[in-house]
Amino acid sequence: MNIVVLVKQVPDSGLARQLDAQLRVDRNGANNVMGELDEYAVEAALQLKEAHGGEVTVLTLGPGQATETIRKTLAMGADKAVHIEDDAVAGSDALTTSAILAAALGRLEWDLVIAGAESTDSNMGVMPQLLAARTGAPALTGARKIDTDGTSVTVEHQRANGYDVLTANLPAIVSVWDTINTPRYPSLKGIMAAKRKPVESLQLSDLGIEAAGQAAAANEVVGAAARPERTAGQIVTDEGQGGTALAEFLAAEKFI
């Protein structure tokens, strides 16, 4: 079973992040890491490979520094990677991004594509369905559990008040939430082995994509502002009356 994992490098979502002067994600001043949900996608792919054999290929579209993220996936155990890197991509919208990724998927052999349910920088959560529309493969999104017998795939699609069991024949596209597994850390042996694993580098011209970037985008960010800070409230230290003070506040606000 051959699996392609989609991985996006993002600024660490636990730290302060900002947009740059062009109103794009500031990646230069940020601590860039693998998309936090994409780690779960890599882990899911590795577990399926361990059970069924085959190869795991990592596919990423992003600037030069994304090689660090690729190295990490290879160190975790992925077999090889494809890195699409082209300055013309900056400022692309989701539709263009999906066209580029779909073109790259068209060059690879896969039974399963696994993505994060959403990236942790722009969090749109649409890429798997956009790719389904473009490749013609079915999409089973938002999985908290994934199983395959080699010809079909079954997932538990996580919902707010339960889950749906979805099934489809392969090839298929699946996206995963952080409830699906616990991603492994790269071992020292894995880190050494990663250095010898092949990384193919592609540009848009290799994929037959002519229009990308802001010029091709169907929407434009026109402004950005920091969310106004919430006005500082009243903080009391409990010296035996904290609970009463809390209840008094709730009563004053008419919640009791």
Partner: peptide
């Protein structure tokens, strides 16, 4: 927070419950 209590929740919440 609009209102905060610095304290052990096992002290603060039972007392708040009683008062509520």
């Amino acid at each position: 927070a609009d209102f905060g209590v610095v304290g052990d929740l096992f002290q603060v919440l039972p007392q708040a419950l009683e008062e509520i």
